[in-house]
Design a protein around this nucleic acid. Structure first.
Length: 558
RNA sequence: AACCCCGUGGUGUAACGGUAGCACAACAGAUUUUGGUUCUGUUUGUCAAGGUUCGAAUCCUUGCGGGGUUGCCA
């Protein structure tokens, strides 16, 4: 039972341990390298937890590097949100904030070096011609007619590309590798393209921009990254990554290792599909609480600790697995059960009149703030003659297993009294409008009465006179289909029409003081978080996640 | 069918040639002033066939299945 046995071990950490043991590296350096072209989502959280987590465990360093080599898609707006999200997840890059665009000059110099060594050339072909010349998966490509230009001509042309002598797409710089290579990435990949677009950081200094492949490994090498962890789709870029590291005079030799990206049931993580939902108002924005973005999850009320625990449990492999979203929700409940303060709130109010309770009387009942943390003590909850209970907690023709309120039945009102339903009041449509009940003074605080009577159910309630009104947004998963990406037809066919339900709820008065962003438990209902849309006169609350509900299962069966 | 990667209960993940373990889910029970929490128990698995070995989830071969790759995106 050494400590080692409890360490999570995966194939990447094993490689790192070996590299440390063999003396290949003294210190581990990783990096999280987002392109600032969108918002981070739960899939990125896996990569963040992996890279920053490894740095922490091995007492190394993790850089935050923006892979900003394509100005057409990028913006500072995203840089800021990405930083905020990484910080919220609980990680710190210290001084190690980098931008690939800061390496443009160095990368250019290295490109010139390759040209001088006859390992790169300027190609005049159109994109279409190049594509054709590359061949396909079965057939080898053919050399470009420009492949054998002289070093001098290439040097001059590349300089002219930089100087802006050509329009977008007129020329590219390519590596001279092997047009018949079985790996398409090695068939003379493009190193630089011409793009006359202002870059969000380098402005109009450049009109040629390096490709991802020509940037990433060298950036890693410049920063002394030892292990460059990326997702599986870069697997067949690795030979190229290594080709650049081997053919360029870089200061260190990083190693690329690939792992499977995170996939979740009932969730769609594709950037362009998420963008579609945002731009076409299927959701309120990137931070809509139903979105799998970090900002959405945060607004929904998921604690970052739960995300970290989840990523830890998910593990790291090369197997393309899909995780059950329920596992994430379980982690959320686990953290919130431990931390969240308890309150009572009624989402779908039904009035209860306690007919034998004095009109003017108000009692302050004691209720535990959090049973998981008894040291926190209790809160006061006002009780009076008029109350609200959950409409669901009353049934006229109740099945045997229904332990809540029914005509002639008695239940415990949590922390208050035992109440017996004496009369059901209905309107002209037969809708139940209120319940007339009597209370037993011998059950104050919800205690068992001296006569030994038993009661099966305990329900929550709110004093009608003291309740705070609130809009509660009850969220459900965005998609009805387990895998909206892979299902037949458009993912839009699988949107859950009930992914948001608005309730005009009655809250326990103490809830008026809860601040935006704070997550609490509404007893018997779930965890709820005060939303950023709240104003001084209107409280808006998101349902983070419901409590486990074994009654719902029983009810469904019968 | 060119090359590459991957196959362990329902979903994931561990076991590194030596008792197939863990989490979630499901089911049953106990406790409970939340039908919550907690606790106990049960069910379900090594893709297949050969080979190596005293012994194979693990090594080898073949097959089967899934995924990826033909951007001047990352």
């Amino acid at each position: 039972m050494s400590e080692k046995d409890h360490q999570p071990t995966d194939f990447i950490r094993q490689v790192i341990e070996e590299d440390l043991k063999s003396g290949k590296h003294k210190e581990i350096v990783t990096r999280f390298p987002p392109e600032p072209n969108g918002y981070l989502h739960i899939g990125h959280a896996k990569s963040i937890c992996l890279n920053f987590g490894i740095a922490q465990e091995f007492e190394g360093q993790c850089n935050l590097r923006f892979d900003d080599t394509n100005p057409a898609k990028e913006d500072v707006e995203y840089v800021d949100s990405i930083k905020e999200d990484v910080r919220w997840l609980g990680f710190d890059w210290g001084d190690n904030l980098y931008f690939a665009s800061d390496y443009f000059e160095q990368l250019y110099t290295w490109a010139v070096d390759l040209i001088k060594e006859g390992k790169a050339y300027v190609d005049d072909q159109t994109a279409e011609e190049m594509s054709k010349g590359r061949g396909n998966l079965q057939t080898p490509g053919e050399n470009s007619p420009f492949r054998d230009r002289s070093v001098e001509e290439n040097l001059a042309l590349f300089q002219e590309m930089r100087d802006g002598k050509f329009g977008d797409g007129e020329k590219v710089l390519r590596a001279k590798i092997d047009m018949a290579h079985p790996n398409m990435n090695m068939r003379d990949p493009v190193l630089y393209r011409i793009t006359h677009i202002e870059h969000h950081r380098s402005g109009d200094k450049w009109c040629i921009y390096p490709m991802y492949d020509f940037t990433h490994g060298q950036s890693d090498a410049l920063e002394g990254v030892t292990h460059s962890l990326c997702t599986l789709e870069f697997e067949h870029h690795r030979p190229l990554y290594e080709w650049f590291i081997d053919n360029i005079d870089v200061p260190s030799k990083p190693r690329q290792i690939e792992f499977a990206k995170l996939q979740l049931t009932y969730t769609m993580l594709g950037k362009r599909n998420m963008r579609f939902l945002v731009e076409n108002d299927y959701v309120s924005g990137w931070d809509d609480p139903r979105m799998p973005t970090i900002s959405g999850i945060r607004r929904r009320g998921y604690p970052s600790e739960a995300i970290r625990n989840f990523c830890h449990n998910v593990g790291v492999t090369k197997f393309k697995s899909t995780h059950d979203i329920g596992l994430l929700e379980n982690e959320v409940r686990q953290v919130l059960n431990r931390d969240a303060l308890r309150f009572m709130a009624v989402l779908d109010p039904l009035k209860v009149i306690v007919t034998n309770y004095p009109e003017e009387k108000v009692e302050e009942m004691d209720a535990v703030k959090n049973p998981e943390k008894p040291e926190l003590g209790t809160r006061k909850v006002p009780f009076c003659r008029e109350l609200y209970i959950e409409r669901d907690d009353f049934m006229e023709d109740a099945p045997k297993k229904f332990f809540r309120l029914k005509p002639g039945g008695e239940v415990r009102f949590r922390c208050a009294y035992w109440l017996k339903c004496e009369e059901v009041i209905k309107d002209e449509n037969g809708e139940i409008t209120e319940l007339h009940c009597t209370y037993d003074p011998d059950t104050r605080g919800g205690e068992n009465p001296p006569d030994g009577r038993k009661v099966k159910g305990t329900i929550h309630w709110v004093s009608a006179r003291h309740a705070v009104d609130a809009e509660v947004r009850v969220y459900d998963r965005l998609f009805k289909e387990e895998n909206p990406d892979a299902a037949e037809g458009s993912f839009l066919d699988y949107l859950n029409p009930n992914s948001i339900e608005i309730k005009n709820a009655k809250l326990e008065p103490g809830l008026g003081e809860i601040e935006v962003g704070e997550t609490v438990q509404f007893e018997r209902l779930g965890y709820f978080c005060v939303d950023t849309d709240s104003s001084d006169d209107k409280k808006i609350v998101n349902r983070t996640v419901p409590l486990r509900d074994s009654w719902a299962k029983i009810a469904q069966k019968s």
